[in-house]
């Protein structure tokens, strides 16, 4: 059994419980052990933009915990992943900001050598677990379910730092969803921004950006959108009703975490993947999965 350390981040641990639970269950099914980082802190998210060194140092503290535990670190959030990757990059390359952060870590009594790989959940699923292994676990294929794969920004950009995917047209989630038996739509907004980071500053812009993503998915007849980031999920699922009010458009489309869809296809129950926790009711998608494809 392969073991990884796991950094949930404040968002996943706090409100996006369906992601935390479905991750845990899916990894268990896949025979992978995940150990939560001990005493982890907030990575700084996208809210400490005016002090880059602070974000690097806070993120590096988490990476240092993974390093001490000795397991590669899985990060399920695009923002946390981006921050931890940047910390690894800046400190390893001893850049100016990396040196300031390193000094702060040293003074706080933290030893970090940027040696442990930081991995996005999607990276581990596609490159370590692999398509064949996922296929072997599919018990109830998602036949007939049309899914829009939405990756978001920070899992693929900047590609020099977050280097496991194609920054323009990533395909890992498409491939996983196809393996699960779903019909994957050609989604032009797959790496466009949901505007989440400016929700508290300039709501109009963030709603407009999310509305474009929701709009394309609905227009192309998707039954649901698949995501791998709690910020994207909060915008597209949690805020969807407010976006509808604001833009006078109607979407009503469920937004599921990739791990929720994987769990369903692997035969887990809807409570195992916490389908009841989604804000836009998600249970209906189970009726859209055609039975003849099932085992």
């Amino acid at each position: 059994m392969k073991t990884y350390s796991f950094y949930p981040g404040c968002f996943v641990e706090g409100s996006e419980v369906e992601y935390a639970k479905s991750c845990e269950k899916v990894f268990h099914e896949l025979g992978i052990e995940i150990k939560e980082l001990e005493d982890w802190n907030c990575c700084g998210a996208l809210e400490l933009t005016t002090n880059k060194a602070l974000v690097i140092a806070l993120s590096a503290r988490n990476a240092s915990i993974a390093e001490r535990m000795g397991y590669e670190c899985i990060v399920p959030c695009n923002i946390c992943y981006n921050n931890l990757k940047k910390a690894e990059h800046e400190i390893k390359n001893k850049t100016k900001v990396g040196e300031i952060a390193a000094k702060a870590l040293k003074k706080a009594g933290i030893n970090y050598e940027a040696k442990i790989p930081i991995r996005h959940l999607l990276d581990v699923l596609i490159n370590d677990v692999g398509i064949e292994e996922i296929k072997a676990h599919v018990k109830k294929p998602l036949s007939g379910l049309k899914v829009a794969p939405y990756y978001g920004c920070l899992v693929v950009r900047p590609s020099k730092i977050c280097a496991f995917e194609n920054p323009v047209n990533p395909t890992s989630m498409d491939n996983i969803l196809e393996t699960l038996g779903a019909e994957v739509i050609n989604f032009e907004h797959k790496v466009k921004c949901c505007g989440g980071s400016t929700l508290m500053g300039d709501r109009d812009t963030s709603f407009e950006l999310s509305a474009r993503i929701l709009g394309e998915a609905v227009r192309k007849g998707a039954d649901c959108i698949a995501v791998v980031c709690p910020m994207c999920h909060t915008m597209l699922d949690g805020q969807q009703a407010m976006i509808e009010n604001h833009t006078r458009m109607k979407f009503g489309i469920p937004v599921l975490y990739l791990t929720q869809l994987m769990g369903i296809a692997m035969g887990l129950s809807s409570s195992d993947v916490a389908l009841d926790k989604n804000i836009i009711p998600a249970e209906n998608i189970l009726n859209k999965i055609s039975k003849e494809g099932g085992v």
Binding site: R157, P158, K192, G201
Partner: peptide, 11 residues
């Protein structure tokens, strides 16, 4: 303050 930090420009 409108920047959403999507890193498209960076990319």
């Amino acid at each position: 303050w409108r920047c959403v930090q999507c890193h498209s420009c960076y990319e």
